[in-house]
Design a protein around this nucleic acid. Structure first.
Lengths: 105, 105
DNA sequence: CTGCATCCGATAAGATACTG
DNA sequence: CAGTATCTTATCGGATGCAG
């Protein structure tokens, strides 16, 4: 009755990626590990609360890894897992599309 | 001051694509034109109001075209514009990623 | 059939202040 | 620095009813 049924995995992927800030956070992590305050500064309009929440969600999805370096002061870095880095082509295609089709205001 | 500033076009693209249902609607329109009730049936959990709202937004973004065929009863079809079809690679990459990295529950 | 308007509760987001 | 707690506001989403 629904011959064009959507693949549940596709739906799940869309659910993850379509949360606000997620694509942008992953994009910022693509070049390499970042610290919390660095990310916060790169995403000018995100609140600390949201960034914290999204990072935790992405960590649970296995997309982001959180590492604590017990120096003094302690340093905490966020980086992408293999699963997270595998999103690069998706973001790349979004970039291509936006370059071709979005007016720069 | 923000040397990793994000491209505004990229941000805009993310803003469009990360709205709920948008990717799924575009995905459903990829094979060809669909009617309202057909879309509604393909997206089992969307309400008519939301579908209507998203279609209107996508029409304003120039991603979806709405055509009225003045038959009796009137027939209305939704299809993708060139801009909309250009999203195919994005969805395709999401599909690839989900196949490789999302567990089928 | 298609689609829009209104209302209302649920969620998400934002600001601010505070802790280890 | 790296968050967390709390509160307020904004937005989203669903149900229903109506109009072309």
């Amino acid at each position: 009755m629904n011959e064009t049924a959507l693949c549940p995995r596709f739906e799940k992927a869309v659910g993850i990626l379509s949360k606000r800030w997620v694509s942008l956070i992953v994009f910022q992590l693509l070049p390499g590990p970042r610290r919390f305050c660095g990310l916060e500064a790169s995403l000018p309009n995100i609140s600390g609360r949201l960034l914290s929440e999204r990072l935790k969600e992405l960590e649970q999805e296995g997309i982001v890894r959180r590492e604590v370096f017990p120096e003094t002061p302690v340093r905490i870095e966020y980086s992408l897992t293999d699963k997270g880095r595998a999103l690069a082509p998706v973001l790349s295609e979004i970039g291509t599309w936006s370059t071709n089709w979005i007016e720069p205001e």
